[in-house]
Write a protein that binds this DNA or RNA. Structure first.
Lengths: 156, 156
DNA sequence: CTAATTTAGGACAACGGAGTCGTAAATCTT
DNA sequence: AAGATTTACGACTCCGTTGTCCTAAATTAG
């Protein structure tokens, strides 16, 4: 898996919040139920995003989380870096520790090129861009899939 | 981590075997000690490669593993597919289950493009290509690194 | 002030990947 | 045939990620 589940949850939540925090904070329980994510687990993921300054949180009634900046100023890179770290943007594919410009590993050149592309894409893609493309349909599809699999799993 | 440790071990071993199996089988213990990998663990990784038809194995004195085909006929893709599976070549980055051409996820287009590139590179890169670039230096660097970290870890 | 709401955060279980160890099976050497 | 060598493979431990549950702290509403 390229991104951890925590990271995927964080990204999905950020997209959701960007679309729903116009009039205040969005409660984590709402995000969790809408995106079918464990509430307590999501709490910790979003804590990371608030600690990294990407979101603000507020306790108490009508509390929740909200973006700390405008959705155009948060990149996919920021989200990934905040939760999974920057390893996927910097690490050698084959995990060879000495791999670098001076002593490239066998796949170094190819992988480096892809990593640079990936980094560029992640830095250019803002939450706004993601949100523009993220329709409610995706959420619905995700729900249906999870429902379908939980059904089949339940039958085993 | 893009590739699992098992996968990295498998790739490194395959490169090593390609360079050393000219006159028969290469023992797993030799590979393990040369590449600083746990012998018993490597045994299981290479078992996967033999079960997938990438390597042949032979028990008994002078036994070991050898490539089943010429090094030019084994691609990086084959090795990754045999150990980690093809998920990284096919899966949606954000893990959205419904993501596809019909209902692309927000990062779909960008990630698909990268995945296609990655797949092409992995399929074109043969073990021979990797071996040509993989100098003994890389092995040495890896060893030195592991030695250095085991030292520092030991001091904690 | 009290009760309700909501995030913060600790404790712990479940799970899978990584790594260790012991034994079985195959094969060669003598 | 006996013993040594080497892969095959099952059982187990270790550890990080995922997920659950409970309590504390902040804040609002009445």
């Amino acid at each position: 898996m390229i991104l951890s589940k925590s990271c995927i949850y964080g990204i999905q939540s950020a997209i959701y919040v960007a679309a729903h925090d116009a009039d205040g904070y969005v409660s984590i329980s709402q995000i969790a139920s809408e995106l079918q994510i464990s509430f307590h687990f999501l709490t910790k993921v979003l804590q990371q995003l608030t600690q990294e300054g990407i979101m603000n949180s507020y306790r108490g009634p009508r509390g929740g989380v909200a973006l700390a900046k405008g959705s155009a100023d948060v990149s996919l890179y920021d989200l990934i870096a905040a939760i999974d770290g920057t390893a996927i943007f910097t690490e050698c594919m084959l995990g060879l520790p000495g791999c670098g410009v001076a002593e490239p590993c066998p796949a170094h050149d190819h992988w480096t090129k892809l990593r640079v592309e990936l980094t560029g894409i992640a830095k250019r893609l803002s939450l706004k861009d993601l949100g523009d493309k993220a329709s409610e349909l995706n959420v619905r599809l995700a729900k249906e899939f999870r429902y379908a699999t939980s059904q089949t799993n339940g039958l085993k």
